[in-house]
Amino acid sequence: MNCKQVQDLLPEFVDRQLKQTFLAGVETHLKACSECETLLTIYRQNMQLLGSFPEVEPPPDLVEKIVRRTAKPAGFLALMERYLRLPAPVLLPAVSALLILLLGPAFLQMNTVPSRSANKYIHRAWSYSTRLYGKAEGMGQEIATFKNIFMLILDRRVEKVQEELENYRKQKNDQQSSQTSYITCDGNGSHQGAINHVLHES
């Protein structure tokens, strides 16, 4: 038997799985060939080293990180978050603004009002985006405002944009006021802050 043949049979030889017909030939070769004998020694040492391979300790915050990630929404938003490394509250307005910046001027450049079907598709796309993002992080109102402004620009009613923004600000202020009164009542255990707030508003 030559070195190549013997070396290929070493795993079975070490595992005592080698057929009787080859055993004597391998043993005789190993006694005479120092190279194959060294390989056998290293092979055995490796087996021992691999068997005692040290276990390593995972980072202490690994479980927490996994739990945090599994709690996040799956799908497109998670994918965006993972690759852009931005949280949802930043991504949503950023994506919407980008869409407006990219598509708005293109339509304006055409110098025509978009056709009915284009209009329909824009509405449908916005409706889809609203459904997709609307509930996330309470951004529904922002998305709706973006959509309204976008449609106003397309309809060449730019003068109404200011009005739309005013409406949005007003709604936001109302929302914050109601939240403030609620927090004041609940948080301090005293109704005085809420009463003051209501009085001030009226």
């Binding site: 795993p11 390989l39 490796n46």
Partner: peptide, 16 residues
């Protein structure tokens, strides 16, 4: 498994 173990042993022998 056998091929992996053998290649590993050959590699380390050559390195030695």
């Amino acid at each position: 498994i056998n091929r992996g173990r053998l290649e590993l042993a050959r590699m380390l022998m050559a390195q030695r």
